[in-house]
């Protein structure tokens, strides 16, 4: 298992997986867009603006999931000092930043026709902005700090502190009164999203997950090549 996780072994699979995703991606994207924009019904109150949810919700989930992974790997990296985890974190961060920003922008575009305002400083929206700050700081920490040891330390520190913000984002809509509605999907509870809207949501989630995986694999490949380049010099 450990051997399998060595960069030299993973590298062989990266190319194959990238090719596989490339081959199926456009088909799933078109199915997803068809369901999200045409085939799914409008909402009983929100009308057609509900379609924004099909990009907003998956983006928010991926933004949160990416930071959770970064925090988890940073903790593991702190304890076990595996350089590979640091490379993985560097490859995840841009995806997380992109999707968190997209969640905020699309949410704003949904808020204007639905709430009647682009923006409200309620607990959920504010904590999402803080998440964007954490992503930016995390990315800057390894872009600006040239000494790798120090960069690892600073970025891990940011990731671990930032994980507390994740908990705040998750429960903000339950602990405090917010303009943002509470979660529609809860573990162990029946969902409050009708099945005809659940299907496009899940397909769009799959599309964006595949896209995220593609970017991750390409970034990770880049990181491995960078590392190998240094090794060639040393020979």
């Amino acid at each position: 298992m450990i051997k399998f996780l060595l960069p030299s072994n993973i590298y062989f699979f990266l190319g194959k997986i990238i090719k596989f995703i490339n081959s199926i991606f456009f088909l799933i994207l078109i199915i997803g867009l068809a369901f999200a924009l045409v085939l799914s019904p409008p909402d009983y109150i929100q009308g057609d603006s509900v379609r924004i949810m099909y990009v907003h919700v998956p983006s928010a989930w991926i933004g949160l999931a990416s930071f959770s992974l970064i925090s988890l790997f940073s903790i593991l990296n702190f304890v076990f000092k595996t350089k590979n985890l640091y490379l993985i974190n560097k490859s995840i961060a841009p995806i997380g930043l992109l999707f968190t920003s997209l969640a905020v922008v699309t949410g704003s575009l949904w808020g204007q026709p639905t709430w009647g305002t682009w923006w409200a400083w309620d607990a959920r929206l504010t904590s999402m902005i803080i998440l964007i700050f954490f992503y930016v700081l995390f990315i800057l920490s390894y872009k600006l700090i040239k000494k790798e040891d120090l960069a690892v330390k600073v970025s891990s520190f940011l990731a671990i502190i930032g994980s507390i913000n994740l908990i705040i984002i998750k429960y903000s809509v339950e602990w405090w009164s917010t303009l943002h509605q509470p979660a529609s999907l809860k573990l162990g509870n029946s969902s409050s999203i009708h099945s005809s809207m659940m299907l496009p949501l899940m397909i769009m989630l799959l599309v964006l997950l595949l896209y995220g995986a593609l970017i991750f694999l390409m970034k990770y490949k880049t990181e491995i090549i960078k590392m190998k380049k240094k090794n060639v010099k040393r020979l």
Partner: peptide, 11 residues
């Protein structure tokens, strides 16, 4: 401001 609930369904 209108506060929306967490329910999504067709008419």
């Amino acid at each position: 401001l209108a506060k929306h609930d967490e329910n999504y369904m067709p008419p």
